[in-house]
Amino acid sequence: MNRAITVRVNGTLHHETVDHRLLLSDFLRETLGLTGTHVGCGYEGRCGVCTVVYEGVAIKSCLMLAVQADGAAVLSVEGLARGEELHPLQRAMHDCHGLQCGFCTPGFLLTMYEFLKTPVSDPNTIRAAMNGVLCRCTGYVHIVAAVEQAARELAQMDPDERARWFPL
């Protein structure tokens, strides 16, 4: 009940043989050792801390089987920074104190990465976009501020520079 798959994660191609029932979240964490993607709930897939970007859109990696990702591209939290340079959203989260324990943070980073491709600067719209990731520490106030800061910064970049920050 195994299958050989090839998945591009953060730009690197991985060839692995996985059990059919292995969840994508566990593929990232256990098979590839990319433990930045976290698992915070159970079968329900509600908490969103496992969110990654799959073929350009934010999805909950605990609600996908690894075998489904054969031939696909995934962006996880480890792939946001460019070397030592943090993604504008990572930097904004840092500047605005948008994280405390950090357990939900990868989920927010990847969900709002997608949001920032076509941002809307209204705080209610930002909050609505965040509804799929739960945080217990911050009360969301500083995360909203961080998204606003990142949106402003990205809007001021020239298109090529901006495109570099959205590899998937």
Binding site: L34, G36, V77, L99, P106
Partner: peptide, 23 residues
């Protein structure tokens, strides 16, 4: 000072170390 945190970098880049990350 409202200094941004030293703790942040590892948590923002997926290099945090939670119990479930230890093998």
């Amino acid at each position: 000072q409202s200094l941004p945190r030293k703790e942040d970098r590892r948590l923002l880049t997926g290099e945090g170390q939670f119990v479930s990350d230890i093998v």
